[in-house]
Structure formats: structure tokens, C-alpha cells
């Protein structure tokens, strides 16, 4: 029997990046846990409600040891959302999933909460200052054509290409995509969830354009716009294309 879909809306799948705290234990684990306890004593509540990724690269833990470690962390109210660098065999059902492809971010400062040292003050009870320094790199400029088979991925902001994007190439940006040349490949703007992102190109011959997870294939584009300078943006769930004057 075939199921009939009554709802024609498509499911939107998006990427989104979060900043997680990464804990990299070292051996012997007992010593490391003791130091963690010491840190927790000085900065009370540091791990409360904070997603933690456990980096076990080079530790060579098997499944039982890893399970023990996660349990010991659980006792200390550290909730592990993912494990990095573990052997595939060490991750079993009921354990946090394996993560990979993590990119470094500025170190998280652990400030000692004054509460334990001085008389409790209302201000000192506030959570630790953890706001990471703002990423200053907000745009990427490519001064050469993007060749077939190449993929430019920049989720932190806008991508500007001074040149063309070839058929079979793709540009993926967290912000807007600007192409000072022909767009013959794929362009994806707002790839990590930004409905305000736009795509601009000098000559539209794209295979696919996408903004915030909504995509449009070449054949869905208005033929009158092909070969024209065009900007594309998102209006609700529809991609709007308009000739640039």
C-alpha cells in the first residue's frame, strides 16, 4: 500500500553551529578527575547547563573505560553531548554520539567565582563570564575563479568571489554570497540559518541556488533572468529573484 502525502510542504533541514566546551582528559584519569573537582570547587556551577564535548584522542580508551569516564562526569553534573576522537568500537548505544570535524574556537576562560572566597554578593552569584571574543573574520574574499569540483565553505559570514563560479563548483556561506562574475555552479547563502542572506551575481547561469535551506534548481529559475545580473532573496518560503539594475 502506498501512503499518500497530504501535506506538500517539504521538511527543512538546516545546519547550525554551536560553541561547546571541550574537555580533554589526560592520563591517569583519577588525577585528572581530582583536578576537575578542584576546578569545580573554585568555579561553582561552571558546567551547569553547559554542553560539553569530551575529547579522548590519544587516550586509547575502550568502551567500558569510556562509559566509566562519562558516568564519573555525570556524577559531577557534567553532561557530555558528544565524544571526539574515540574509536568507533568504543561508542555504544546509550552513549553520546561521536563528533568529528570540530574547528578550534577561542579558549573558554574559567574565572574563579568570588563566592567561595569572599562574602556572598548578589553580583558574584552570577554565572561565570564566558562570552567568547567576537570573531573578527566576518567575510571571505576569493580573488580567483572557483573551479569545477572546488567547494568554498565559510559559515562565519559573507563570501565574495571576484571571478566566476564554474559548473560543478559550490560556494556555501553563512551570510550572503556575492559573485562578481558568472554563477554557473551552486550558491548557498545563509547556510547555518539566516533567512536574511542574499545571493548576488553578475551573470546567473546557476545549477542550484539555496538560501536558509530553501533551494531552487536551474529549471525553476525564470528563463528571462538567465545570463542577467541578478539578486536572490528569501520571502517566507520562496526564493525571489530579481534583475539587478
Amino acid at each position: 500500500m502506498t501512503e499518500v502525502l497530504t501535506d506538500s510542504r517539504s521538511i527543512r533541514i538546516k545546519g547550525r553551529s554551536f560553541l561547546a566546551v571541550v574537555l580533554s582528559p589526560d592520563l591517569p584519569l583519577d588525577d585528572w578527575l581530582a583536578r576537575l573537582d578542584d576546578l569545580a570547587k573554585r568555579s561553582a556551577g561552571f558546567f551547569l547547563g553547559r554542553p560539553v564535548v569530551l575529547d579522548v584522542t590519544d587516550l586509547g580508551l575502550d568502551r567500558i573505560q569510556l562509559k566509566d569516564l562519562i558516568a564519573s562526569l555525570g556524577e559531577r553534573n557534567v553532561s557530555v553531548m558528544g565524544v571526539e576522537g574515540a574509536r568507533p568500537s568504543a561508542i555504544g548505544p546509550g552513549m553520546p554520539p561521536a563528533l568529528k570535524g570540530g574547528r578550534p574556537a577561542p579558549d573558554v576562560e574559567v574565572t574563579e567565582s568570588e563566592a567561595t572566597l569572599e562574602a556572598p554578593q548578589p553580583a558574584a552569584a552570577q554565572p561565570i563570564i564566558t562570552e567568547a571574543p567576537r570573531q573578527t573574520l566576518q567575510s571571505l574574499v576569493i580573488r580567483e575563479p572557483v573551479r569545477s569540483g572546488q567547494s568554498i565553505v565559510f559559515t562565519e559570514g559573507d563570501v565574495t568571489v571576484v571571478g566566476s563560479v564554474a559548473s560543478g563548483a559550490e560556494v556555501i556561506a553563512g551570510g550572503s554570497v556575492h559573485i562578481y562574475g558568472a554563477l554557473r555552479g551552486r550558491a548557498m547563502a545563509g547556510a547555518v540559518g539566516n533567512a536574511g542572506a542574499r545571493i548576488f551575481c553578475r551573470k546567473l547561469e546557476a545549477e542550484l541556488v539555496a538560501i536558509d535551506g530553501v533551494y531552487k534548481m536551474a529549471e525553476d529559475l525564470d528563463p528571462a533572468l538567465l545570463g542577467q545580473p541578478v539578486q536572490l532573496w528569501l520571502d517566507g518560503d520562496a526564493i525571489i529573484a530579481e534583475k539587478l539594475i
Binding site: R147, S148, G149, Q150, G168, A169
Partner: peptide, 16 residues
Amino acid sequence: EVSSVRDSDRIIGLLD
């Protein structure tokens, strides 16, 4: 022709 041009484009990317 288009397939040769696209393959050449790929090769140029590898040359770079």
C-alpha cells in the same frame, strides 16, 4: 564542447 571545458576547469583547480 561543454564536457571537455568543465573537465579542464577541474584540472585547472587541481593545478592551482
